[in-house]
Structures are given as structure tokens and as C-alpha cells.
Design a protein around this nucleic acid. Structure first.
Lengths: 341, 341
DNA sequence: GGCTGTTACAAAAGCGCTTTGGACGGGACC
DNA sequence: GGTCCCGTCCAAAGCGCTTTTGTAACAGCC
């Protein structure tokens, strides 16, 4: 059933049927009701492609996931982020298009999406330090919003980020309040902007209390369980081992906990640890008191809000850019306690 | 730059330019070269929407992720599966559309995708027992392929699945060969077809050796670390505890390992465990000998192949249905050893 | 009665492609 | 010379919508 058939069936012109369904006022309410009923009865849905061609808007928003190499890591927060964004899109009448693209082809991919009229807007994920994509997208003229920030650019753009610096500063402060002085940092890859900021927060907090920063207490890598385990094990084996850890993700934290237990220590008593928790649904902690003390911020909610942000930019491209800085909650769990003396 | 502008610039008709770029033979090679060069020079890309409207094919494939409730679990294999499928799509010139839909609206969503001409085909994920979606999609007339199978339907459809039954039967056999007689099953939700089959494999293998199936040794739930931990802890606390576990995912396995270690036991010596490993990139094990003995099957590869399968169905809807049953490898790691006596 | 305004509909253009159905000129063939 | 075919190219229709631009009918007003 297409518009033509529906209009013939109703004895009306395509114009009137279209305008009736799209809420124009130059259609009598009686006619509108009749049209609506017929559309409902035949389950008429306007053809997306035709509508997109006629309006010049596709009502699709693109997410690009760069493929580093064939076996590269997929970001574990991806699924929850997508779920959040997808919720917003469907309730706003948008569709989500995901494109897996070779990292080297990323610029071309953005341009091609614009040229082909594939999407009305974009979400940019996982910004790196001095990320070149921002300038690129401004040049292309496609509305976008960034999940995170890119240190090193002085351009204005719309973004949503967790206050990673403050979150890690607070967590560091919290550990120091408990008496910890040697705090190991098990960070993500510091080419990623968020990891860079977390280290800043950590270092600032230490410096503010006059604690010398010890490079032996800092690690960075892709955030796997195995990496968390190795990092914590190695640091614990040092001559002057840390009494606490600051960890960048729950997955890593699972490895850190293992290393601590394997060393014959008790997490939360002999060694403390705070992790960042993106509230990934498949890692959720359903205990009354959470297992891990954590700086917590829902990545799903970030997805929801960021989706709203691009939609707003599409609706109003000239509006000033919007920035949203989410503060992570500091949730006390069972993985922290006073420093042993 | 659109087709009209390009053709005017070349002094050719739109027809000729279009046919030159699309490889038709009624264009001289000289002209084709000239057209190609101009298209390249101006980075011309045909407008997707216009092309879709003209051809009746959108070159988009839909993935529907049902939303159970606002806080429902996102499937952790989602990200890697999508990455795999996305790779195939981009090299085949397709786009991937992901739609987050209320579980109750799922049928409507499929129908609407068809009616609106949004997608040329669909991937159906996480089939449940007696899944109604298969019959529904056949009725709609949209090509699709299923990731997994739905026990209880006798319809023909195209699917790709891991041989979960055999994988778990083999793993059970392997544990019994090592002398284990009491083997705990830490399964996923058995409303999911794959979990049901895994239990079948487990039970068959036990029965084949005349071992009585003990309901106290079987658990099922959503596969989180916490669930793995609780399940293993509880079973280990029973009067006649298991000496081995069969676990449905690596995330669960991390919990199982923790429970074992907390019980003062050594994994691979006092208690053995085999897990299924979807080779999720963020849980990868980079050791020389893997930490876990596992039935291994790459969900990313499954995504790649399944994407190919839908594309083939789109290209040739009348072709007989295709089924692909991937055998999981049984990889020996450090989590298994002879049963203690 | 003539003018203006308003209401309710419709014809037709247009979005940017693909595809159908020629058209034209130049051999090849008889 | 006429016919046929082949190689190249093009005009125009069509995909299914939205939107612009009417238009007819009727009411209100002087």
C-alpha cells in the first residue's frame, strides 16, 4: 500500500492524504479522521526512501566504529552505549546506522556519508588526543556530537563527557583520606583522551598533598582482565608496593582483584581499590553493598543524552554548541578500607 | 555534485554517466574512462536515497535488538558480533541499521521495516525456544538469517549456529576422561535456545557414561560475573561438591574462578572448569597457554558469516535455505586437570 | 454586485537516481 | 542500394513521497 493507492481508495488526491497524515492545517478534521482511519486499517507507512528523497533528510544518524586491524578490540562499552542511543532514536523517530570502517578510511567514510546523503548527523566516539576528526567534520558540514573530548583542539563543538579528571581526583583523595600514600594507577591507553584526563586527576590530587608521583605506580594498556591482573601483580611485587589501586574499568578490576587475592592479600583490608564503573549491564553488581568502590557513570545514559544532542543539532544547526559534563558518583563498596600500617 | 551536474559538466546525458559508472556495456571504454575520471575528480557519490528509490533496494540490513525493560541486560556478545557483521557489510556495499525496540513491539517493528522499505534484509538474534519471530518473518517476506536456532519450529530457515550441544558434550566427556564424575553446570538462561542445547549436550554425555544427572549441580541465569561466583560458591558448599564446572561464558568463568579461589582451592588442580569462549575481544586471553580450557568459537566470525548469509538471501531469495553449524574448538588451558581422588 | 479572505482540496513539479525504449551512424552482408 | 546489426548515446518515464502553487466554493463586507 503506497500513497497513491491509499489516495485512490479514499477518492482524494495524494496531496491531501499526505498533508492529512502530516498534520497540516489545510485539511478538514473530518477528512483527516477518514484518512487516518484508512491508513490505520491498511497499515500504511510512508516509504522512507521516497520521503527522504523528497525532504532531503534521511532521519538516520550514523555511528562510525573504526577498525584498527582485523583482530582489534571492540570497545566493551559499545553495546551499552548503542542501547542507550538507540532508545532515544526510536522514540524520536530516527534510525541508527553503524558503519565499521578501516581507521585509515575514516575521513573518507565521513565525507562519503555526507555526499551520499546517508545520514543527517553523526556521533563521534572515543576521541583521541588532538583528534583530527573534529576539524574534519566541521569542514564537511554534517551535524555531530562527540562522546568525550579531544584535548588539543581549540574548536567549539558539542560534546558530552564524564568529568574523568575530577572523578579520579576524588577517588585519589578518598584513598588518601583513608591513609593511602602509595596508589597504583591501572589506566586505559593514554592516547585515549579519557585516560589522559584520568591520569591528570590522579596526579593533581597526589601533588595537592605533596606526594611525589612515582612512574613505577602507573600503567596503561587496553583494558582487559589479563592486563589488570598483570599490572597489579607486578606493582605488588615491587619493593615498596602500593596499598591501593585506581583502576580504569570493572573488567580490569576483576584482574586486579585476582592479583591481590593471589598475593594472599584481602581486597578492602590489605589492599584497597577503586574502579571506574560504566555500569555495563553485563557486569552489573547486584549485591546490597557493591563489591567495588567505584566512580560510577552510566554509559547507557550517556548514549541517550548524546543521541538527543545530535538530534537537537540537526534540528537547529545554527544553535550554539552544547557541552555536558557528567559528574561520576563516588560509590562506596567493599573494596576499600583504611590503609594498613 | 549530483548526477545532473556531473553529466552537464561532461557534456553527456545522465543516462550515459549513470550507465558508465554502473558498468553497463553500452558505453564506450573511452567515455567510461572520462566519466570515471570526472567522478573521481569531483568525488561524486550517487545519492543513496535516490538510488534506493529508483532501484527499490536500500542496501541496508537491519538488526533488531529487543529491549526487555529500561535496565535490561545488553548482550555482551553484541559488540563483537556487530563488528564482524559490519566488516562484511562494508566490503559488500551494505549498511547496517540497528533498531532498539520494545520486546512487545518487535513484531510491529519488523513489519514496519518492510512497509517503509527501510531494509532489504534482517538478522534475527538470540532466538528463544519456540521463537515466534521465524513464522512472522516468513509471512512478511523479508529475507533474513538467524543467529542460532529455535527449537520447536519445524519451518525451514537460514541460520548459523555453534554446535552447542556437541561442544558441551565434548567438554563434559573431556572432564569425565580426566576422572571427574560430579560436574557442575553454570548455564545461561535456558529460555535461550543455545543454553537449552548446552544442557542437552551436558546431560547426554553424562547419561552415556551412566552418570545420574543431579539437579543440584545445575544452575541457569543471566551470565554475569556475580552469578558465576554465586553458582560455584553454592555448589562447592554442598555436601558432595563438584570437582569440575562447565561454564557458559568467560564472564561467568571469572566469577567461578573467584569462588574456587575463595574456597581455598586451586583451579586446574583441585577443581577443574571448562568455559565456552566466544572470543570477545575485550576478554581475550593473550597468554601462551590460555588461562581457561574452553570450547571456543568466534562470535565475530559468526557475525561475518551471517552477514554474508543474509546478503546471499537478498540476492537470491528463492534459493534453498542455508544452515551453517560451526563446531567449537576444544582448547586446553590451565583450568583443567585430573580429578583429585 | 464586486471585492477580499478563508477553507478545503488538487495538479504538478521536483527530489536524484535507474531503466526503458528508442535514435543515429557506420559497417557488414546480400 | 537496401537491409540488418552493432556500438553508442540519449530523452523521458518512473520510483513514492513532499511541497509549491493554484483553484473552486463560500462567506463577509461595503
Amino acid at each position: 500500500m503506497n500513497l497513491k493507492q491509499l489516495s485512490e481508495l479514499l477518492g482524494l488526491s495524494q496531496t491531501t492524504v499526505s498533508r492529512a497524515l502530516n498534520g497540516y492545517t489545510d485539511v478538514s478534521e473530518a477528512t483527516r479522521a477518514r484518512v487516518r482511519a484508512a491508513a490505520e486499517a491498511h497499515d500504511y507507512r510512508p516509504n522512507t526512501r521516497a520521503r527522504a528523497l523528497a525532504t532531503g533528510r534521511s532521519r538516520v544518524i550514523g555511528h562510525v566504529i573504526p577498525k584498527i586491524s582485523s583482530h582489534a578490540m571492540v570497545n566493551p562499552i559499545f553495546a551499552d552505549f548503542i542501547a542507550g542511543a538507540g532508545e532515544t532514536y526510536s522514540s524520536a523517530g530516527y534510525e541508527m546506522l553503524i558503519s565499521v570502517v578501516d581507521l585509515a578510511q575514516e575521513e573518507k567514510a565521513y565525507l562519503s556519508m555526507k555526499r551520499r546523503g546517508l545520514v543527517d548527523g553523526l556521533i563521534v566516539s572515543a576521541p583521541r588526543m588532538n583528534d583530527p576528526r573534529i576539524a574534519l567534520l566541521d569542514g564537511i558540514g554534517l551535524p555531530y556530537a562527540v562522546h568525550g573530548r579531544a584535548t588539543g583542539t581549540d574548536r567549539q563543538y558539542s560534546w558530552l563527557d564524564v568529568n574523568n579528571r575530577r572523578a579520579f581526583a576524588r577517588a585519589t583523595d578518598f584513598l588518601m583520606d583513608l591513609g593511602h600514600r602509595r596508589i597504583g594507577l591501572v589506566n586505559g591507553l593514554e592516547t585515549m583522551d579519557f585516560a589522559h584526563r584520568r591520569r591528570q586527576g590522579y596526579e593533581e590530587a597526589l601533588r595537592a598533598r605533596g606526594i611525589v608521583i612515582d612512574p613505577n605506580l602507573m600503567r596503561q594498556d587496553e583494558m582487559t582482565e589479563g592486563y589488570g591482573w598483570r599490572a597489579a601483580r607486578d606493582m605488588l611485587a615491587q619493593p615498596d608496593p602500593p596499598t591501593a589501586f585506581l583502576v580504569s574499568s570493572v573488567i580490569c578490576m576483576l584482574g586486579v582483584r585476582r592479583a591481590i587475592e593471589e598475593a594472599g592479600l584481602v581486597l578492602g583490608r590489605d589492599v584497597s581499590a577503586v574502579t571506574h564503573d560504566d555500569q555495563l549491564s553485563y557486569l552489573r553488581d547486584d549485591g546490597a553493598v557493591p563489591a567495588f568502590t567505584a566512580t560510577r557513570s552510566s554509559v547507557r545514559e550517556a548514549g541517550q543524552r548524546l543521541a538527543r544532542m545530535v538530534i537537537d543539532r540537526i534540528d537547529n544547526p545554527e544553535a550554539p554548541h552544547v557541552q555536558e559534563l557528567l559528574e561520576a558518583e563516588l560509590i562506596i563498596g567493599r573494596s576499600t578500607g583504611p590503609a594498613p600500617r
